[in-house]
Every structure is written in structure tokens, then in C-alpha cells.
Design a protein around this nucleic acid. Structure first.
Lengths: 154, 154
DNA sequence: CGTGAAACCGTACGAAG
DNA sequence: CTTCGTACGGTTTCACG
């Protein structure tokens, strides 16, 4: 939990570019290659790094439109939530789904090719799950990433 | 925009593991190494892949709690939104911020060490921006990733 | 934590479909 | 225009000091 500063530096670098060579990473953190290599291995083994992945541009893939769908479920039971997630989260347009406290029970983020595709997903796929009481769709105008998790928590 | 199936396969593989060797990637898609290498290069150059990154586990980094802060801004102008984002999005606890249509103008996703840290961010950092009219904080109970952008849009 | 050497890999290039 | 095979130089990786 209390990670040495060197590991924070490694994580920042890997977040910026996960394909950095171990050599460059080592020279950036000022350690030997073998040491750096070992630290990365331990971070992965410890589950601090959950995966190395590629960020893709939705627009470049023909899905320039993003939206947030806020869903209210009834009855409010753990099982209803799980069933709902299982039903919608596999759809190709779903980026992620978040289970929340408050009015909205689940919030789904989608990337779609058009407003027609959005309508199809929201009005057909989502509202066809019986436990969905109501939905509200909001257009995403802009999305900004924060500093990332590698920074010091506070 | 209409990507060949081979490129989709490459993107899926790179999303699952961006540190895959070019050799394994080539054998998985059934092309020669040099060809695969070239396709990856083109995908990056074309901006389809925006970056290779590492996903980290918030809990393993001492920030086990996530929340969504819905913000209403007044007056509603583009400049007010931009200023607000600039003021809050650099805070270490911010995962990302989304500008939306509807009641909520901006939604901020945060990962924090404790409810105290959440309170500090929401009540001090966020509400201290003059154009913030109101905020609503929601706890994130669960988060699930969708299939990812590499799948066929529809 | 550093060193070294063997195994492994990325990458450029010419050629061919 | 895309694909392929090859060869070289760089990199990862591991046992050991």
C-alpha cells in the first residue's frame, strides 16, 4: 500500500507508455535493468498493475458519439443489479457500467456510431430488461483524463 | 473507419495485452511478423491506438473508495466549463471528468483513500470554484468494463 | 542491487504476389 | 498495395556475485 517512490515512478512511466523498453525504464528510474525488471514483475504479481492495454480512439473506429445512460432498477436487489449487468454489459457499444448509490442504480457509458444506434441500444436492449424502471440518456460532450492512479493518493 | 478484420483482431489482442510480443501477435493473427509489425505501426500512426498504457488497481494503491461527483455550473458557458475542468481535473484523486448534456454539467470520477479524503475533495476543492452551483456525490459500488472498442460497432 | 551471457525479439530491407 | 523471409543489432531474462 505504501509504495516506494521508485515504484510510483515506474507506474507513472508504464501508464504513459506500457511498451517502453525495460532499458529506458531502468535509465529513467536510475536503477539497473535487472532490478527494474524485477520490480515490474513484482508489481504485476502483486496485482498493482492489473493489465497492460491499448487505448483506442472511438472516432477513428467509426463510433464518434458517446453517451451516459442512467438506469433505475426495481426492485432494488443485488440479484436484479447483477442480472441487469449481465444482460447489457456484453453489448459491443458498452464501454463500462457503474453501480451507484443514489437515484441512479446503474450508469452505462456507451460509444456508438450514430444517434440511431444509441436509440437502439437504449430503447431496445436496455428497456427490454424487465427490472428497468426508467432510463435517462445524456450526451457526452467531452472527456478528460485525470492524473492517473500512480500519483500519491494525498 | 471500416477496418479490415485482421486489424480488429490485432486491436483486440493489444487491448488484452499491450506488451504481447510482435511474434506472438503475428502467430495469433496468422500473418508474418514483418506484416504484423507494419499494421501495428499504421494503426498507431493513424491515431486508432492513442496510447499503450497500464491499468492499475486503486485498492492496491491505497485508494479503495470510488465516487462520482455530479456538478451543476452557473452560468452555463463554455468558458465556465473549461475553467472548472482546469481547476479540478489535475487533482491526484481525479480519475476522469465528463462534460454532459442534462441537469448535470460535469461528472467527476474520483478514487480516494477514505470518506474523509472524498469530503475534502468535494467540499473544499470542488465547491470552492465560484461557478459551482451544486454538487451531488454518489458512491461507486461496482465497476464493470464492456467488451472494448475493438469489437464491431454494430 | 549489479553483471554478464545466452536466448529472444524488433526492425529494416529486398523481393515477390 | 500488401505480404513475406531473412539477417543484424538490440533487448530481455536469469543465474550468480
Amino acid at each position: 500500500m505504501e509504495l516506494p517512490p521508485v515504484d510510483r515512478t515506474i507506474l507513472v512511466a508504464l501508464q504513459q507508455n506500457s511498451r517502453i523498453t525495460n532499458r529506458e525504464l531502468a535509465s529513467r528510474v536510475g536503477l539497473a535493468e535487472s532490478t527494474t525488471h524485477e520490480r515490474v514483475r513484482r508489481l504485476v504479481d502483486a496485482g498493482v498493475v492489473t493489465r497492460f492495454t491499448a487505448d483506442l480512439d472511438p472516432g477513428a473506429l467509426g463510433r464518434p458519439m458517446q453517451a451516459l445512460i442512467a438506469v433505475q432498477l426495481r426492485p432494488q436487489s443485488a440479484e436484479v443489479v447483477t442480472r441487469f449487468l449481465d444482460a447489457v454489459v456484453g453489448d459491443p457499444c458498452v464501454l463500462d457500467a457503474t453501480v451507484l448509490s443514489g437515484e441512479t442504480d446503474v450508469q452505462i457509458r456507451v460509444a456508438v456510431a450514430s444517434s440511431e444506434a444509441l436509440r437502439r441500444f437504449a430503447w431496445q436492449k436496455v428497456t427490454s430488461v424487465p427490472s428497468v424502471r426508467s432510463i435517462q440518456t445524456h450526451i457526452v460532450y467531452e472527456h478528460r483524463r485525470g492524473p492517473g492512479l500512480a500519483e500519491t493518493g494525498d
